[in-house]
């Protein structure tokens, strides 16, 4: 039995080159050297190893500007069979949700057993696209995966997941989406002799069947208000400020140290319904909120 594996990758600014546009709060990508997101190297390597062991096909997918093709080239030279680049001006500046939706539009018509993502990207470090994509594809997903073992029945996979205090071992049916931690394997060097000719395809939104009218980055619900450098802390430890009220101390403990997201709304219908609600939500609630500010 062989496995059909999709690997989602991203091109990111080379380490040390991450800069933020002070006006748009978006990443500056122009005239900055780009590389394949280091976390994604583990994803490609893992996928290629699975194919080498059991057979199958590895398809790398990315979304980005035309020059993101070089990330796909690296993927193919590491052993991926095919690469798809979703590139479209209308997607520039997408947040994680719209990125995940866009990826889901490419992946949905494909047949696959496993979707592998890196844990996060080094440019924005949200670690959101993997889980969001799983939701959009209606897949089980496991994050922080440090080991994958395939059952002899070929329908299940045992997944080892790292946590703050140890690890969890889970078993899941396929298909499944996983995000991998660094160090799950040692990624090979790309073989620059490998030709990528005819193995990388460019796709635009017009090539996809998308049921959402005017689908574009403008639907992104995330707005970056401000980015500042984090203060360094002496010890990374959860501490409750003793000056807060008792009720707030308890509430923060229950929430693992976080403030309640009281405005969160769960969207749980089909994609069209969700997008409509999302649109309304942005226009009414957030829009109103921004205007007031």
């Amino acid at each position: 039995m062989s496995y059909r594996i999709i690997v989602c990758i991203k091109q990111v600014p080379a380490l040390g080159e991450v800069r933020i546009d002070p006006d748009t709060h978006n990443l500056v990508r122009e005239s900055v050297p780009s590389v394949l997101n280091p976390f994604d190297e583990f994803a490609i390597e893992e996928a290629v190893r699975i194919r080498e062991r059991f057979g199958g096909i590895v398809t790398a997918i990315t979304m980005g500007p035309p020059q993101a093709e070089s990330a796909l080239k690296t993927a193919v030279q590491m052993g991926a069979d095919l690469g798809f680049l979703l590139t479209d001006r209308r997607l520039a500046g997408s947040d994680t949700l719209i990125t995940a939706l866009a990826l889901s539009f490419i992946i949905n018509p494909m047949e696959f057993d496993l979707v592998i993502c890196g844990l996060e990207t080094t440019d924005s470090s949200t670690a959101q696209v993997g889980p969001e994509l799983a939701e959009k594809l209606n897949l089980f997903h496991v994050t922080y995966v440090s080991r994958l073992e395939f059952d002899h029945d070929k329908r299940h996979v045992s997944v080892t997941r790292e946590t703050d205090s140890g690890y969890q071992v889970m078993r899941s049916r396929l298909p499944l989406l996983v995000t991998l931690v660094k160090g799950i394997n040692v990624p090979r060097e790309p073989d620059t002799q490998v030709s990528v000719k005819d193995r990388i395809k460019h796709v635009s939104l017009d090539d996809l069947s998308i049921s959402i009218p005017n689908f574009s980055a403008d639907l992104s619900p995330t707005q970056v208000v401000k980015i500042e450098r984090a203060k360094t802390r002496n010890r990374a430890q959860f501490v409750i400020d003793s000056r807060l009220s008792a009720r707030d101390r308890i509430r923060m403990i229950m929430q693992g140290g976080m403030e309640q997201k009281s405005a969160a709304v769960m969207l749980d219908e089909d994609i069209d319904g969700m997008l409509k609600k999302l649109g309304d939500f942005i226009l009414q609630d957030i829009g109103g909120e921004w205007q007031r500010r």
């Binding site: 205090s165 430890q237 959860f238 501490v239 409750i240 008792a246 308890i250 403990i253 229950m254 693992g256």
Partner: peptide
């Protein structure tokens, strides 16, 4: 009066009081 923090139930995270022993 706050016995739920004395013997905290499932909704209170594991090891929640580590910071108190640190203090």
């Amino acid at each position: 009066s706050s016995f739920y923090m004395e013997i905290p139930p499932m909704c209170i995270p594991l090891g929640f009081a580590e910071y108190l022993s640190a203090e």
